[in-house]
Simulated scan of single mutants.
Amino acid sequence: MNGAVLFAILAAAVPEGSAVAREPDHNRLFRDVRRGALVPLSDIEKALLPQMRNCQYLGPEYDPSGGIYRLKFLCAGQVLWIDVDARTGRVVRRTSP
């Protein structure tokens, strides 16, 4: 079986709406930031990190379904998440376990 036939069989076996057929979240995020639909994470970090002086920044996550950046911090032994609306840059929630 040649490569073209194998590719056609595999392509037909993948449902159109499947995760394999979708654009990866990081590509969509990059594209949306570039076109101005989302605030760059670096801008949000520049605004928020100085306010979190006594905490260790553990890093970000992005939820594409909600358009939310989630920044994770360790503050006095407690984990703190700060959720930021990626479209506006506004903090929408602070949570800790």
Rank of each mutant, 00 (worst) to 15 (best):
residue 19 A to T: 10
residue 82 I to F: 00
residue 5 V to C: 05
residue 93 R to S: 15
residue 70 R to D: 05
residue 87 R to K: 08
residue 46 K to S: 14
residue 15 P to V: 07
residue 31 R to G: 01
residue 86 A to Y: 05
residue 42 S to W: 09
residue 10 L to K: 05
residue 22 R to Q: 13
residue 40 P to N: 05
residue 42 S to P: 02
residue 9 I to S: 04
residue 6 L to R: 09
residue 72 K to N: 12
residue 61 E to N: 12
residue 50 P to H: 11
residue 57 Y to W: 10
residue 40 P to G: 05
residue 91 V to K: 01
residue 47 A to D: 15
residue 67 G to N: 05
residue 64 P to E: 05
residue 64 P to F: 01
residue 50 P to Q: 12
residue 27 N to D: 11
residue 45 E to A: 12
residue 4 A to V: 07
residue 74 L to E: 12
residue 7 F to P: 02
residue 32 D to I: 11
residue 22 R to L: 09
residue 33 V to L: 08
residue 62 Y to R: 01
residue 67 G to S: 02
residue 72 K to M: 11
residue 6 L to N: 03
residue 8 A to D: 12
residue 86 A to F: 09
residue 83 D to C: 03
residue 90 R to A: 13
residue 73 F to G: 00
residue 97 P to E: 02
residue 66 G to F: 03
residue 39 V to S: 00
residue 62 Y to W: 03
residue 67 G to P: 05
residue 96 S to E: 13
residue 25 D to A: 14
residue 78 Q to Y: 00
residue 32 D to E: 15
residue 33 V to G: 01
residue 32 D to G: 04
residue 85 D to E: 08
residue 39 V to D: 00
residue 88 T to C: 01
residue 61 E to L: 10
residue 17 G to E: 11
residue 37 A to T: 13
residue 20 V to Q: 06
residue 85 D to G: 03
residue 82 I to W: 00
residue 55 C to T: 14
residue 88 T to A: 00
residue 3 G to Q: 15
residue 84 V to N: 00
residue 90 R to F: 06
residue 61 E to T: 11
residue 4 A to R: 09
residue 11 A to C: 07
residue 32 D to T: 13
residue 41 L to F: 13
residue 56 Q to L: 10
residue 18 S to Y: 05
residue 92 V to M: 02
residue 57 Y to P: 07
residue 94 R to S: 11
residue 81 W to L: 10
residue 87 R to I: 04
residue 53 R to H: 10
residue 23 E to A: 09
residue 42 S to Y: 06
residue 61 E to W: 05
residue 28 R to K: 15
residue 74 L to V: 07
residue 19 A to H: 07
residue 69 Y to V: 03
residue 10 L to E: 04
residue 30 F to A: 15
residue 7 F to N: 06
residue 46 K to L: 13
residue 25 D to S: 15
residue 76 A to K: 13
residue 12 A to W: 07
residue 84 V to K: 00
residue 70 R to Y: 01
residue 21 A to I: 12
residue 91 V to H: 00
residue 77 G to S: 00
residue 1 M to Q: 06
residue 57 Y to D: 04
residue 32 D to K: 15
residue 43 D to I: 06
residue 83 D to K: 10
residue 34 R to S: 14
residue 91 V to L: 08
residue 5 V to M: 10
residue 12 A to Q: 08
residue 82 I to S: 00
residue 82 I to M: 02
residue 40 P to D: 06
residue 47 A to S: 15
residue 45 E to G: 04
residue 57 Y to Q: 03
residue 54 N to V: 11
residue 70 R to A: 04
residue 22 R to S: 12
residue 29 L to N: 01
residue 37 A to S: 10
residue 32 D to A: 14
residue 30 F to Y: 14
residue 25 D to F: 13
residue 50 P to A: 12
residue 55 C to E: 13
residue 82 I to E: 01
residue 27 N to Y: 08
residue 76 A to M: 14
residue 86 A to T: 07
residue 23 E to H: 02
residue 79 V to E: 14
residue 93 R to Y: 13
residue 5 V to R: 10
residue 4 A to F: 07
residue 23 E to L: 14
residue 75 C to G: 02
residue 34 R to N: 15
residue 41 L to Q: 07
residue 11 A to P: 03
residue 43 D to M: 07
